[in-house]
Simulated scan of single mutants.
Amino acid sequence: MLPLDPHAGTGRRAWVACPNCDDRRGCATCEQGRTCSGHWRYLLSHTGSLLHLQCPSCTHVWSHETGFGATRGPGPAHRIGPGGTPDGSPGP
C-alpha cells in the first residue's frame, strides 16, 4: 500500500470511481451521480482535462481523462508509476 502523496489535501478533491477498490459501490448518493461526503479522491494535479488522483481508501494512484475542456485524446485510465502502463479499467 502506497503512502498518501505529500500533495494530497482535502481542499482539492474529485468524485471519480477508484479503479482499484471501487469503494463507492453500493452508496446510494454516488449511484445517483451526486457528490458524496465519503467517496471522493485526492486531486493531486491536472494537465488540461487529465486528472492525477489518489484514493484515500486504498491509496491507489492513477490518471483519469475527463474529456472536458482541452482534452489530451481519448483513452482508458492509466496508472501512474513505474512503466506507466494502462490498467484498462473503464471510466465512470
Results as ranks from 00 to 15, higher is better:
20 N>Y: 12
51 L>P: 11
92 P>E: 06
76 P>E: 02
52 H>W: 11
15 W>L: 07
58 C>A: 03
74 P>E: 07
61 V>H: 09
45 S>Q: 14
3 P>A: 10
1 M>Q: 06
52 H>Q: 10
4 L>P: 07
17 A>E: 08
45 S>I: 06
82 P>S: 09
21 C>E: 11
29 T>K: 12
90 P>Q: 01
12 R>G: 01
62 W>C: 02
31 E>R: 14
85 T>W: 12
54 Q>K: 07
75 G>A: 01
4 L>S: 12
35 T>V: 13
88 G>Y: 07
16 V>G: 00
55 C>L: 02
78 H>L: 05
50 L>T: 15
44 L>H: 10
55 C>W: 00
57 S>N: 14
52 H>C: 11
64 H>S: 01
77 A>L: 11
75 G>T: 02
9 G>R: 13
10 T>Q: 12
47 T>Q: 13
3 P>D: 12
50 L>R: 14
81 G>R: 00
75 G>D: 03
28 A>E: 15
65 E>F: 00
84 G>H: 03
91 G>A: 09
80 I>Q: 07
78 H>A: 00
78 H>D: 01
16 V>R: 06
37 S>R: 15
67 G>E: 02
20 N>H: 14
10 T>N: 11
22 D>P: 00
25 R>I: 12
15 W>A: 09
38 G>D: 15
28 A>K: 15
9 G>W: 03
59 T>C: 10
42 Y>Q: 05
86 P>F: 00
23 D>A: 15
81 G>L: 03
20 N>G: 11
44 L>Q: 05
65 E>S: 05
10 T>V: 12
43 L>Y: 09
71 T>W: 01
65 E>D: 02
37 S>K: 13
7 H>C: 08
39 H>K: 10
40 W>N: 05
44 L>M: 10
71 T>K: 04
73 G>P: 04
27 C>T: 12
43 L>R: 10
22 D>W: 06
29 T>N: 10
13 R>C: 02
35 T>Q: 15
28 A>W: 14
17 A>S: 12
77 A>K: 04
58 C>M: 05
55 C>M: 03
82 P>L: 11
57 S>Y: 07
48 G>V: 00
27 C>R: 11
73 G>Y: 05
57 S>W: 06
73 G>I: 02
72 R>D: 04
88 G>N: 04
79 R>V: 10
44 L>R: 08
35 T>C: 15
82 P>C: 05
18 C>S: 06
5 D>C: 11
73 G>T: 04
42 Y>I: 08
52 H>L: 12
86 P>W: 01
1 M>I: 08
26 G>I: 10
49 S>T: 10
64 H>G: 00
43 L>P: 05
54 Q>S: 04
92 P>Y: 01
74 P>H: 06
67 G>P: 03
51 L>Y: 15
38 G>I: 10
36 C>I: 06
77 A>G: 12
41 R>F: 06
91 G>M: 02
31 E>M: 11
83 G>Q: 04
15 W>N: 09
28 A>D: 15
8 A>Y: 01
77 A>V: 08
43 L>S: 08
45 S>T: 15
22 D>L: 12
26 G>H: 13
66 T>S: 09
8 A>I: 07
67 G>R: 02
83 G>I: 03
47 T>G: 09
12 R>P: 00
91 G>T: 09
64 H>K: 00
81 G>E: 01
22 D>N: 13
62 W>I: 03
60 H>Q: 03
20 N>V: 07
11 G>L: 08
89 S>T: 13
24 R>E: 07
49 S>W: 06
67 G>A: 04
27 C>K: 13
20 N>L: 09
83 G>S: 04
